[in-house]
Design a protein around this nucleic acid. Sequence first.
DNA 1: GAGTCGCGTCCCATGAGGTGGGACGCATCC
DNA 2: GGATGCGTCCCACCTCATGGGACGCGACTC
Lengths: 274, 274
Amino acid sequence: MGMPEIPDDSYLRRVVAVLGAFRAEDGEVGAAELARRTGLPKSTVHRITVALAEEGLLERQGSAMRLGLRLFEIGQRVPRQRVLRDAALPYMTDLREATRQTVHLAVLEGNEVVYVEILGTPGGPVMPSRVGGRLPAHATGVGKAILAYSPPPVTRAVLDGELARLSERSVIAPGLLARELAGIRRDGVAYDYEESGRGIVCAASPVLGPDGEVLGALSVSGWVNRMRPAGVAPAVHTAALALSRTLGHRDRPRTPSTGHVRAERGLQMAGIGP
Amino acid sequence: MGMPEIPDDSYLRRVVAVLGAFRAEDGEVGAAELARRTGLPKSTVHRITVALAEEGLLERQGSAMRLGLRLFEIGQRVPRQRVLRDAALPYMTDLREATRQTVHLAVLEGNEVVYVEILGTPGGPVMPSRVGGRLPAHATGVGKAILAYSPPPVTRAVLDGELARLSERSVIAPGLLARELAGIRRDGVAYDYEESGRGIVCAASPVLGPDGEVLGALSVSGWVNRMRPAGVAPAVHTAALALSRTLGHRDRPRTPSTGHVRAERGLQMAGIGP
DNA sequence: GAGTCGCGTCCCATGAGGTGGGACGCATCC
DNA sequence: GGATGCGTCCCACCTCATGGGACGCGACTC
């Protein structure tokens, strides 16, 4: 009866668990705290942190430790974010210049979006988003834009999963969300009316790759009483289309099932680099 | 005779070696290529990459693999870059606005600087620097600014180490470099006259923390015939001083040995928060 | 079409090394 | 002084990483 103590061990899993135990807010953390967060024996955490520090992935200041700079270096080499960010940055600055609002660039990972770059504005609202941070895809503008152009299995997984609410206006009804995604596919623009946070609205558009696959999304966000989503939508849409084109996209954005998709080749946007 | 085959194994070291084998330029890499770069047996690399993919640190597209988005997420949580970057960004945009040149933010790691943030300009030169990339500290403006305010042992290690040349004007004479660092301590500004790359000049100033310890450096770079380093120096110096003040620095920047240094507490800039 | 090369994958006997409960010293707090 | 938390270290057990080699595959060459 019952799982035999979870056979799911392996050294690497524990190491990653320790690294993942560091939260975005905290700087230095003690070994005991890490043991508590990971559920690993104190002794094991101690040994792992010592080993990680030897490799430079962790920095030890006496007995307190924090994530090492080497992790930042490696993280900046991740193609999914680097290629997209490098290509998108000029368009993002244009977008901020034109709209005077906060500009977001995000990609999808599972049921969530990961923010790759954010260009803020001096007087803008404090967004719940952080570079490298995650938010439920269904409750954000960028997330809905990506989901609308994702392969059916991906979209279905989100619709069938748990739809958490970020604010009282978050759309958490699967049917309603599915219908909204259809509308986004038709317009090429997704809206967020205070669904990700109080007082924050947003317009977003998908960024498509060479084979019509969605790579991420751009968005413009601002205070509900200082920005009209429909007003900035053309700018966001245009910027996303232009960015898609520089990334090699040829067709007009359509339903993923339409068009001549060469799915076998995958993203293969490897050689774009410097 | 000679080293007995390097007893220096350990699983973790190999795992980190595999992750480090990914270069900034390349997107997807094969297992055989990784084995070649790391010097590890093909069989070992295969097993490690499979394990890494299970943890999400690597993404496998068929048989090709690339660094996973999770590494980017973790990398963005590294305090050394996050706290500094968040605090510096406003000053950096001001600096770019005022000078219309490329602005750099970097920290020291060993004998090299790691670039934390770069604000480029449309018409500016292509710099050898990349966010998350490394360059020899002694051959860059930011590097010399940091070294000038670093603890003696750190500076000595660089002076005694190998001083590689990035260009024909790189300062690679230890004595000359030491004298230049003394001048930087006096002025609060470091210059780079085509020492890091052809046609590129730069002015840099150190960013100091609460206890007078150097956290990093700001710089402004541009074409040698379109920017006068001495002209932008006051702006860079001012921005660095202002940034240092927001980070809790109280005294005027002096030689690290001067002033009431409370070194025991270390950086401890943990709680500055999100 | 036979040969060759490089690739990713898988197997398996060996032993290196990760495991974790527990002990220890040390601070801090009541 | 007792209690609680911390980081560190030890050591007998046994899991699991090791890497040489075999295999199938596709892409070339002669």
